[in-house]
Amino acid sequence: MALDDAFQQSMRRFEEQAAAAAGLRERIGELKGSARNTDGSVTVTVAPSGAVLGLALTPAAMNRSHTQLTQEILGTIRAATQQAAAQVEEVVRPAVGDAYYEQFQAALRAHAPAVQPLGPTPPPEPAALPQPGAAPVRKPRPPVEDDGDFSDETIYGGPR
Rank of each mutant, 00 (worst) to 15 (best):
S10R: 09
G40V: 05
M11I: 14
P143Q: 06
E125G: 15
E72W: 08
T58V: 04
E102W: 04
T58Y: 12
A85M: 10
Q17I: 03
A6G: 06
N63I: 02
P59E: 15
G157F: 01
E153V: 04
I155F: 10
V92Q: 13
A35N: 05
A80S: 01
Q83F: 11
D39V: 09
Q8Y: 11
L55F: 01
P59R: 15
H111V: 02
P124Y: 02
I77F: 04
P132R: 00
A47W: 00
Q17V: 04
Q103P: 14
G97P: 03
A99S: 11
G50P: 05
T38V: 11
P142L: 06
S65W: 12
A99Y: 05
V144Y: 12
E102I: 02
R12N: 11
P132T: 05
R141K: 15
K139M: 10
N63S: 12
L129Y: 08
R138W: 11
S151R: 09
D39W: 15
Q82I: 08
A86L: 09
D146M: 11
A35T: 01
F7W: 15
I155T: 07
A61W: 09
A47E: 01
D149T: 01
P140F: 00
T38S: 15
P159C: 04
G157H: 00
R27T: 10
T67S: 14
P94C: 00
T121M: 14
G133E: 02
E90V: 05
E102N: 06
V42H: 11
L108K: 08
P142E: 07
E30H: 10
T38G: 15
V96M: 03
Q116T: 14
A85R: 12
A56H: 15
Q71V: 13
I28T: 06
A110N: 09
G29M: 04
T154I: 05
A128C: 03
P122Y: 01
